[in-house]
Amino acid sequence: MVNETQKFCLEGKYLTFNLMEEFYGVNVEHILQIIAIPEITKIPKTPDFVKGVINLRGKIIPVIDLRIKFKLPEQQYNDRTSIVIIKLKTKQSEIFIGIIIDKVLEVLDIHNEEIEDTPTFGVQLDTEFILGMAKVKNKVVTLLNINKILTETELTQIEKSKK
């Protein structure tokens, strides 16, 4: 699925975090900031994974719950729950989105030899949002393609609701 050059490009610094005791990684170049969970303003008529918006230093940023997006069981937020603010590029412009995760871990250097292809589970399954799997310190870290987590439609929907 990922050819050699692509794979080569995957090397870099990743922010790792927990979801349901599993490890995920997002390339730091997409990341703006990490914050503790603040008060979230709920917005009606949005998909269930959109938790609402927050005010980050005067900027309104929509937040989505990655557990719900990944169809994992929901969990009461606690003092370790954090929001990672990421920068997404859409066709028109670039937008900032906060994703709610269980626990933020560390910034890791991931090298090419540690990365393996995404396993194919069958034709029907959509694994586009996964860049690859990295083996770091006896753990498997799923490297996320942050641009493919939300579909184009979902993105526009979020944009609209923000306004």
Binding site: G12, K13, L15, V28, E29, I31, L32, Q33, I34, I35, A36, S82, V104, E106, V107
Partner: peptide
Amino acid sequence: LLALNAAVEAA
């Protein structure tokens, strides 16, 4: 969190 943000910035 601050340390992580700093790490992201450093990256």
